[in-house]
Deep mutational scan, measured.
Amino acid sequence: SDEEKKVRDQAKRLGVNTEQLLKWARRQGDEDLVRIVERLLRS
């Protein structure tokens, strides 16, 4: 999905993997991002 591509691009920009991005999203309190990243991790 578009959202998932955006998440992957953001992880690349930050230089982190998906698990690290999830931690980062939780720290930001970004519920939408957390949900998308969790979906990516499960897929």
Rank of each mutant, 00 (worst) to 15 (best):
R8E: 07
A11G: 05
L22F: 01
K12G: 03
Q10T: 12
Q20W: 12
L41R: 02
Q10Y: 15
R13N: 03
V37L: 15
R39Q: 14
L21Q: 00
V16K: 04
S43E: 12
E38Q: 04
G15V: 06
L33N: 00
G15A: 04
D32V: 12
E38Y: 03
Q28S: 09
D32E: 11
L40N: 01
V34P: 00
Q20R: 04
L40I: 12
R13I: 09
Q20P: 01
E4W: 15
K12V: 09
D32G: 06
D9L: 07
L33Q: 00
L14C: 06
G29A: 04
V16E: 02
D2Q: 11
L22W: 04
E19T: 10
L40H: 02
R26F: 10
E38S: 03
L14G: 02
V34F: 04
K12F: 09
E4F: 13
D2W: 13
S43G: 10
D32F: 14
Q28G: 01
I36N: 02
N17P: 07
V16Y: 15
S1A: 07
S43Y: 14
Q10N: 05
K6V: 08
V34E: 03
W24Y: 03
L41S: 01
K5A: 10
D2K: 09
S43P: 10
Q28R: 07
R35N: 08
R26L: 14
A25L: 14
G29T: 05
I36L: 13
D30S: 07
L33M: 02
L22P: 02
G29S: 03
V37N: 00
I36S: 02
R35K: 11
A11S: 04
R8W: 14
E31S: 12
V16Q: 03
V16A: 05
L41E: 00
K23Q: 14
L22I: 04
V7R: 05
R35M: 05
G15T: 04
L21M: 03
S1R: 12
R39N: 05
I36F: 11
D9R: 03
Q20C: 15
L21S: 00
G29D: 04
E31W: 15
R27L: 15
K23H: 11
E19P: 03
E19H: 09
A25F: 09
D2I: 10
L41Y: 02
L21I: 06
L21P: 00
R39L: 08
R13G: 03
E19A: 09
K5V: 07
L41I: 08
E19Q: 09
V16G: 09
K6H: 08
V16W: 15
E19W: 13
L14K: 05
R27Q: 15
R13D: 02
R13T: 05
R35P: 00
T18D: 05
N17Y: 12
L41M: 04
D30M: 13
V37K: 00
S1V: 10
G15K: 09
R39D: 07
E31P: 11
K6E: 05
R8Y: 14
T18V: 15
K5W: 07
T18L: 15
E3N: 13
D2L: 11
T18M: 15
D9I: 05
D9G: 04
W24P: 01
K12T: 11
G15S: 08
V16D: 02
D30F: 15
K12S: 06
L21T: 00
E38M: 10
V7S: 07
E3T: 11
D9W: 10
E38H: 02
R8A: 10
R13M: 07
Q28D: 02
I36V: 05
E3M: 14
E19L: 12
R13S: 05
E31D: 10
D30H: 12
K5D: 07
K12R: 09
D2S: 08
R8H: 08
Q20S: 05
L14M: 09
R26M: 14
A25C: 10
E4P: 06
A11M: 15
N17G: 04
N17E: 04
R42K: 14
R42E: 10
G29V: 12
L33W: 03
K23I: 12
K6D: 08
L21V: 01
K6R: 12
N17R: 05
L22H: 01
G29P: 02
Q20I: 05
L22R: 02
R42G: 11
R39A: 11
I36E: 03
Q10C: 15
Q10P: 05
T18K: 09
S1L: 11
R39P: 00
L14A: 05
S43A: 11
E4V: 10
A25P: 01
K6Y: 14
V16L: 15
K5N: 06
S43N: 12
L22V: 02
R13E: 04
D9A: 09
V37A: 02
R35G: 03
D30R: 10
N17K: 07
E31Y: 11
R39V: 06
V7N: 03
R42L: 10
V37W: 01
Q10F: 15
T18A: 12
G15Y: 10
S43V: 14
A25D: 00
R39C: 15
I36Q: 05
D2G: 07
L22C: 06
R27N: 14
E3K: 15
L40Y: 13
I36G: 01
R26N: 04
N17Q: 03
L22D: 01
E19C: 15
R26A: 08
R27E: 15
L21N: 00
L21Y: 01
E4I: 12
E4G: 07
Q10A: 14
S43T: 13
R35L: 05
R27Y: 07
V34I: 11
L22S: 00
D2P: 09
L22Y: 02
L21G: 00
D32T: 10
Q28N: 08
V16M: 15
L41A: 02
R27K: 14
L41W: 02
K5H: 06
L14P: 02
E19D: 09
E38K: 11
Q28H: 14
R27H: 12
V37I: 15
L40C: 01
K6W: 15
L21E: 00
Q28F: 11
K6G: 04
D2Y: 09
D9Q: 06
R8K: 07
